[in-house]
Design a protein around this nucleic acid. Structure first.
Lengths: 266, 266
DNA sequence: GAGTGGTCTAGACCACTTG
DNA sequence: AAGTGGTCTAGACCACTCA
């Protein structure tokens, strides 16, 4: 069905081109052009596989220089809406392979945003040596670590346990931090940069230890979130969050970059 | 005198400036400059709050035009590594507020990538009216929907139930799709665009129905993923995935855009 | 070989913020 | 008032790919 459309358009040439939208907004020209073309694609006026006019033709149509058109088109291509290759023209991308993503937020902010009263308690805090009781595979044996255990509460009810190891070789300042006002996760977020982070999310049945700390019955479903953070190939921190299933959920919205762009004007 | 003050500031500023890296890669100039400055920031040679030389000075230092420097710096600012304002100079951003994200993938691809043998079975498939037994709050009462129930298996073992509603007003083609070779989630991903998607992830204890479908004991912890997909303000599909906790985990890596850029050369 | 996108330059004007 | 970033133009050259 797409093939027939393409053939027809190629035969007719410019005849099937959608009309050139007027540019009258206060935004920069390249933003208006980008938005106009994105809107054509999302509305279905330009369909997957369609060929776009080349930069020079578009420049004439919109009455701007080729550079300005190039900036708009290149940004759309970077966002995955268009496919471009030298000499091979510009096409509307076939599949929008934007992947679904789930933001993982700080629990304190989640509780506060939901209108709850957030509090936390430091349950454990000690400097330990890697391999001495606790083992962190990513870190060298014998390296100094700070071990933290922290309970997070929503209106006085426990919702999450945080079990964390921090590499003191990279974050020495944390040894002197009392965490009187700022919970460890927020302190780290504000003080330590990261390059990559790996997450694993599971559902687990609470064991006796977890049940006691969270005040729930053993066997209750809990959400387990593990995160390992690395900066410039050196491990920074490893953390394990355990949350009561009935009291906690991860949620969030993904928005395609194209939709974001469109919403700025509509 | 103003001139003297400016000269003094410039003298101090230039004295603490890190050396200008050589540009010798095969990449475009603006990519090399962008990478060089990003590396300075990540290595700590430029610290949070530091002021950068202005575009003209950088252009002279690197021996390129101001436009080329602008492109590099503007991209870094777009990625959040720099803060720029007119007349207010360019500064290294204080907090890297890159948020952690978890990609949510298709289960068939996860199983295959992990080396398992993926299969699925359509358990239910019927056209229903909204409000008639099934209720989809986002969709108008009386609208036609396709209800699907699908079991996903890894080497013959059930790992996930998929319960889905599809808005036939937007995706009429799906009424004729037999899903003989392609599971519903993949078909939808390849055929239907989306603008926004909302996710909620929970841990739940399996009820009797779920336990029977998944072949597990009631009470076993399961991961619940709900997704509601919207395109141009119209609901497209709503889906509920239920996965056995012991057999399924969400995992993925987040990489800061800056680190991505750096890794291209290192 | 010809056409397309990718990059770069030199110069210009404007909007905004600071001193 | 002056300096900064944001944008735009006209023109140029190159790399890549297609006919």
């Amino acid at each position: 069905m797409i093939g027939a459309t393409v053939r027809a358009k190629l035969a007719e040439g410019q005849a099937a081109e959608p009309p050139v939208p007027a540019l009258d907004g206060p935004d920069p020209l390249f933003v208006q052009i980008k938005r106009a073309i994105a809107r054509q694609i999302l509305r279905g006026e330009r369909r997957a596989g369609d060929r776009l006019p080349n930069e020079e033709q578009l420049a004439v149509q919109y009455g701007v220089s080729r550079q300005t058109v190039h900036k708009a088109i290149a940004l759309l291509a970077r966002e995955g809406l268009l496919i471009r290759r030298r000499r091979a023209d510009t096409f509307v991308a076939l599949g929008r392979q934007d992947s679904f993503v789930l933001p993982i937020e700080d629990i304190g902010e989640m509780v506060t945003r939901a209108g709850g009263r957030y509090a936390y308690r430091i349950l454990a805090r000690e400097i330990v040596t890697n391999g001495d009781g606790v083992h962190w595979p990513d870190l060298a044996q014998g390296a100094a670590m700070l071990r933290l255990e922290c309970l997070h509460l929503d209106n006085g009810t426990p919702v999450q346990i945080e079990r964390r190891l921090v590499n003191l070789g990279i974050v020495p300042d944390i040894a002197d931090e009392p965490f009187a006002d700022t919970p460890p996760s927020r302190w780290l977020r504000d003080h330590v940069p990261w390059s990559t982070a790996e997450h694993t999310v599971r559902a687990v049945n609470a064991d006796a230890n977890m049940a006691a700390q969270l005040g729930i019955a053993p066997g209750t479903a809990c959400l387990s979130i593990e995160r390992r953070t690395v900066h410039l190939n050196r491990p920074v921190t490893q953390v394990h969050f355990l949350s009561v299933g009935e009291r906690f959920a991860l949620s969030g919205a993904s928005i395609t970059s194209t939709a974001t762009e469109l919403n700025r004007s509509e």
